[in-house]
Design a protein around this nucleic acid. Structure first.
Lengths: 166, 166
DNA sequence: TCCATTTGGTTGCAAAATGAAACCTTATGT
DNA sequence: ACATAAGGTTTCATTTTGCAACCAAATGGA
């Protein structure tokens, strides 16, 4: 994937780090409690060389940190940083989408519950500050403060070429 | 990627469809208003053969529908279905993560605003039904009604091998 | 303190996916 | 009716993946 489009879109920037089949599964596995190389490998079913590569990238990106927990030498564990932990929203969005569309309500393979009071999870909702739900129909897109020239161009010509359905 | 692990986890099931560098960008582009092959190609910067392949997969998955809008013959447009539109939460989670960690507050390249009343977007929050925020620390995972034997095994042995930090 | 076993990788190679360009047919604007 | 653009498909070189073999270092147990 070229790097050109990562500069002007946060979705692309995120996908540039996490946009492959394995990387988010490694993060998920950390949320499930794995911290050792072999835990990740066994539970995800990923080849060792690929896991090794992905862990290096994730560490470079500041999503994991590598901690030496060896007793008589060096033995590593991999933990999520704050940056990594904040991916819980992304994972949860994917989990809830998969629950709904791949398995269907009532067939969820895995559930989260509050460890302290056993309460259930609320479905994620995208809302406006007024409290209204975000929909494709009520959403307008505009360049933000960090928009580059290409993004400005892009939005300047929006609404002209494509005929939106509702 | 092997299919074995898609059966028992909604994150994996979702990644099995969307877990590559391009697919979610195609979906994002549809949210931005593109519907024609050439719109997607130009704006994403994706090779035509890859775009063709991804659109086919997305149609097979029921995320896009292909509509003939030809005047003197066949000419297609690609629109999100309800299943596709419901990916807005996933995209928004990625966008907000990228805004925060790749660009930083105040440097967002793209903003959403309410088309009707110009209100701003609220940050997505993962919460329990009590209203408390979900964190790595207060989250417990347990098998759901659709858990298969492998998932049950998996969770039966949790908490034993790995030492969680908090 | 040995020793067998596990952990945490790396290396090499075959197979699959990707990316760029060329090419082609059909539709569209004028 | 004709020039151009849209919407792909094909081909081929390059890159990435996945599997297996291999290996050094760390660990657990006697």
């Amino acid at each position: 994937m070229t790097k050109a489009h990562t500069l002007s879109c946060s979705v692309a920037a995120t996908l540039n780090i996490l946009g492959d089949a394995w990387t988010l599964l490694v993060v998920r596995e950390a949320f499930y409690g794995s911290s050792r190389f072999s835990d990740f490998q066994r539970h995800i079913g990923i080849a060792k060389n690929i896991l090794s590569d992905r862990l290096s990238l994730l560490i470079d990106e500041g999503i994991f940190e590598k901690v030496d927990s060896g007793v008589r030498g060096q033995r590593y564990e991999y933990f999520l940083t704050a940056k990594g932990k904040s991916l819980n929203v992304v994972l949860l969005a994917m989990m809830q989408w998969g629950d709904r569309w791949a398995f269907g309500a009532g067939n969820e393979p895995v559930l989260f519950e509050n460890a302290l009071d056993q309460s259930e999870l609320s479905p994620l909702r995208a809302t406006w500050k007024t409290g209204a739900n975000l929909t494709v129909e009520n959403t307008a897109i505009r360049p933000g403060p960090g928009a580059d020239a290409a993004t400005l161009d892009r939005f300047a010509s929006l609404g002209i070429t494509s005929q939106r359905e509702s």
